[in-house]
Design a protein around this nucleic acid. Structure first.
Length: 387
DNA sequence: ATTCCACCGGAAGGGGCGGGCC
DNA sequence: GGCCCGCCCCTTCCGGTGGAAT
């Protein structure tokens, strides 16, 4: 491995990240999307305010990077025509409250890195934002990533964007909202929608060909190309595109496969990819188990201890008995069966076990709980929790 | 057809706590 | 920093349910 950081975006310095992205776009990936963006936002070059834009697309389809890249080009185009354009990026990737959203916006606008103290009145934040925008002229694009991620009072935030802000500042603003939830628009206040006067656009997931290009680029940057088989890349792309077409996942899988290859043959072929796929799945499950709440972990532990003693299926009642015993051992307060029942359905939902309701006629109706995890994982879980 | 088992899963209400707001 | 309200977790209560048994 020559330069492993190219397999992990988090570790890549900003400048490198940008140059990698440039190359992605040079290879004509996302070309269609860029052309559509251009079609919709082009008016600004001629000095007209374009409509606001709402972009849908699953995560990992390159919405953010494509938009950032495009806005950068748009900016240079504008400057050759003497149209002043600035753009700001508001990242709501992690859920924010209404206040938090204002905070992010303020940070993006005034360039400060520190977050504003919480406990400041909302109006104060709004004034800050207005002041920052009041200082600039011409056009301004605000790119709001994961706009659906505002947990509370998103109406207030959006109303401010749509109504208050344009009135209070001289700069002419247009927005680009990114979201991966198609139904977001539906739970918005229709009045806000009408003010926004927006246009929609959809980002298709990457197809296998796109992913192959992206992976090749990473391989060229990060690895000794001779040690990577073309078929392996294709396989990764196939895995990723079959699932969601998420480029991040594809790169993640590549990284894992490289790790596997390093530990074994030193050569990256299809076999390593398969093995990486598998171990990635195990990692995810372990992570999921580790992140469970205490009670849920106890319940899970109880189910699998029960299943060990009684092969096959377990009824809710029996599982609950095990659970009470486990709780006693651990010195924890056992919850009610009602709650336990909910936890079982929860864990079924997350694939940590199978639980389907079945009627046993005269002998009642219950969930049949059975294992859905590989034996190895179950063992390591029970061992690690016995300690 | 009826009974009845062993739970399901909705509703309502209590209580603790953490985040929003000043 | 401190207060307060909303949310989440939990319990209690209870009507509902599919199909073996009778």
């Amino acid at each position: 491995m020559l330069n492993p950081s190219f397999l992990d975006d988090e570790k890549l310095p900003e400048a490198e990240r940008v140059s990698v992205l440039k190359e992605v776009f040079h290879r004509n990936i996302r070309l269609k999307q860029i052309q559509r963006l251009a079609g919709l936002l082009a008016p600004v070059v001629g000095g007209t305010l374009p409509a606001n834009l709402l972009i849908y697309g699953a995560s990992g389809t390159g919405k953010s990077v494509t938009c950032l890249h495009f806005l950068e080009t748009l900016k240079t185009m504008c400057s050759t025509k003497d149209v002043p354009l600035r753009y700001f990026y508001v990242d709501l990737t992690t859920p924010r409250t209404c206040f938090g959203a204002f905070n992010e916006l303020a940070i993006a606008l005034d360039g400060s890195t520190r977050r504003y103290r919480k406990g400041i009145a909302l109006e104060h934040m709004q004034e800050k934002i207005i002041a920052a925008l009041g200082a600039i002229e011409g056009f301004c694009c605000i790119l709001i990533d994961e706009a659906d991620n505002i947990t509370t009072d998103s109406d207030i935030f959006l109303t401010f964007l749509a109504k208050t802000l344009p009135k209070r500042v001289p700069v002419r603003i247009f927005y680009v909202f990114l979201t991966n939830r198609i139904e977001w628009e539906k739970n918005l206040d229709p009045r806000i929608l009408s003010v926004l006067k927006k246009q929609d656009m959809i980002f298709e997931p990457y197809d296998a060909m796109d992913l192959i290009e992206i992976l090749r680029l990473r391989v060229e940057k990060a690895l000794d190309v001779k040690k990577v088989e073309e078929t392996a890349i294709r396989k990764i792309a196939a895995y990723a595109s079959r699932e969601t077409g998420d480029a991040r996942k594809a790169v993640e899988l590549l990284a894992k496969a490289v790790k596997v290859a390093e530990e074994t043959t030193g050569l990256l072929s299809e076999a390593e990819v398969d093995s990486a796929e598998h171990s990635l799945e195990v990692d995810k499950t372990e992570e999921l188990i580790a992140s469970l709440a205490v009670q849920q972990r106890l319940a899970l532990q109880a189910c699998y201890t029960g299943l060990r003693h009684q092969k096959g299926k377990l009824s809710t009642g029996a599982a609950y008995e095990w659970y009470r015993r486990v709780c006693e051992d651990e010195g924890a307060q056992a919850l009610t069966q009602r709650r336990f029942s909910d936890m079982v359905s929860f864990m079924d939902l997350y694939g940590l076990l199978n639980a389907r309701v079945a009627s046993k006629g005269r002998y009642g109706k219950t969930r049949e709980i059975s294992s859905s995890l590989p034996q190895k994982l179950v063992k390591s879980m029970l061992v690690s929790q016995d300690t």
